[in-house]
Design a protein around this nucleic acid. Sequence first.
DNA 1: TTGTAGGCGTTATCAC
DNA 2: GTGATAACGCCTACAA
Lengths: 353, 353
Amino acid sequence: MSDAANSRPTLAGVAARAGVSASTASLVFSGAGPVADATRARVLEAAAALGYAGPDPTARSLRRGRTGVVGVVTEDRLGDAFRDPINLALLDGLGEELADEGFGLLVLPWAPDSAVELAAVPMDAAILLGCSADLASSVERLRRRRIPLVAIEAPPLGDVVPIELDNADATRRGAELLRALGHEQIALVTLPLDVARTRAPLTPQREAASTAFTASERIRGARAVFPDAGGVSAGGSTVSEGYAAGRALLDVPATERPTAVIAQSDLLAIGVIRAAEELGIDVPEELSVLGFDGIRLQGLTAHDLTTLVQPAVEKGRAAGRAVREALAGDLPAPVALTSELRRGATVARSPIE
Amino acid sequence: MSDAANSRPTLAGVAARAGVSASTASLVFSGAGPVADATRARVLEAAAALGYAGPDPTARSLRRGRTGVVGVVTEDRLGDAFRDPINLALLDGLGEELADEGFGLLVLPWAPDSAVELAAVPMDAAILLGCSADLASSVERLRRRRIPLVAIEAPPLGDVVPIELDNADATRRGAELLRALGHEQIALVTLPLDVARTRAPLTPQREAASTAFTASERIRGARAVFPDAGGVSAGGSTVSEGYAAGRALLDVPATERPTAVIAQSDLLAIGVIRAAEELGIDVPEELSVLGFDGIRLQGLTAHDLTTLVQPAVEKGRAAGRAVREALAGDLPAPVALTSELRRGATVARSPIE
DNA sequence: TTGTAGGCGTTATCAC
DNA sequence: GTGATAACGCCTACAA
């Protein structure tokens, strides 16, 4: 116990103790290449004696050029990112394609003043999750790293594999249903329009300044049918934000009230419905409510929501697959997924003939 | 553009192009050490010309001995880990102490046949999150890596910083409340007892074989007051599992029915209440239900649950702090957190005099 | 089947 | 202020 007995044991140390070369010891641990049983035994014995836990992951990563880690960049705070059930479904998909295949998922909450420089994070690839335009400069630096980048529902970005959802078109189809049912007074309850997540009435200025791609797309789809629809942007995709938005929109004289609300998520829709109930407004007889996502929420007395069901798990799978393809040296094809209008029980003919 | 113009640019390449030594170029990017403005400019210019994105994170990690990544090991599937609101709160705490401080969180779902060898993952420290005894061998290998390990609600493990919760004692206090209210027929609805997550009646054998620390502790606390209490183990901490357990326990002749249920999570409790409602059993008049966690669930018509409120966010903060202390070279002190009984409206005097 | 040599890309240390 | 040198710990040709 003369030399460095207390510092972390290394492959070289193990090899020395076993009376073998480092390369041979390496073979024992990597399993790549033939090693005589006796030799292997000696090496393992030496490793055990030294308390060697196997090759250092960082050194191995450097040498192999792979870390086994895939980054998932989100603009939410850590906990909030997963409070939205749609992201949980997405995670399920990512899990199937990445975690189950041995990749670790590195969650990277990003904020404008974030402490993490994305380009300095050790990872083999990154998935951009609902990222606003604010991320642009960070993404630019990430791209220079030349690691595969996959963006879920993001504006087209050079050299980034897009996983798209038909946000505009799906919303348009939902809006058309409402129009077909005679609705003319429509209000939108949108996802946050910017990182500030301000809850406030929609204005042309605010919409124009929006950096949130998905929200803007869904607005665009709604406007294709109801060009003049007003509404409010919520401060998040939550029931309570939907409730607040609902109060703001519905707690007005009946004549000024919309006959239908297009909410940009199911959670928002549920909040709106709750606000309506509280105000004594019947859904769907007096107010139609359309959601988006098609989630089933833990413990939520399922209003049978009329909504646009998006393939959230598949979104995750597609992103995961794209990462693996890129890592395998292939060029992943862009993916475009579509949502489906599900007729629930929260939309009916307009009460105004 | 003669030499390796297409391979990834490196610090050496940048230095060469700028006519500086690699060490000087390094200083420009690390900011550690004085560099003449002119030199710095030349280096940055060369970097821009070459499309150099900054020092390679893996190489830097190897050299510095730090990756900036903290692993979070969970035994749930990826999405499921965050379906439990208690884990979301915990993530909030971790976010404050780690993500906000520049650490990336590497989520590592672990399963007995998992594709990831924990000891081979590049990370500076790991947090074990609700880990059963099944993890033992993996943890043992992790420990050999000599990286700081923090375990949240785990059985005592040598050399691992424990973040404990008073699971047994808190449950005992809840049970005592029930006893004080005259209850004698008690049923437990527990968290899963093993990785298989079998939903089944409790038996001494199954309890003895349990590898789930938190579940076992909470059972122990309940038994301290009601030594003979039976019950069922759920297949997860979800409303639907609670519902299923509730049906199993309550859909029996009234005389055989428990007058109170001790559920090991709020989600389970809510499920039980739902089952009771469906069976026409009034809560709390005919059935008292006690939960655990003290969560507020997105969109859930808050039954004002009587429950044990645990400091979940603080649990995350404590774990994050412990990691940072350990990484700073200090020896983090064990943390023991306590829960508080909140009298809601789901517990009342026993209907049986 | 085993050993030798070289390098993955960076940074710490110490001279100059 | 700047540069040479030496690791960090490992893996992979290739040679023996």
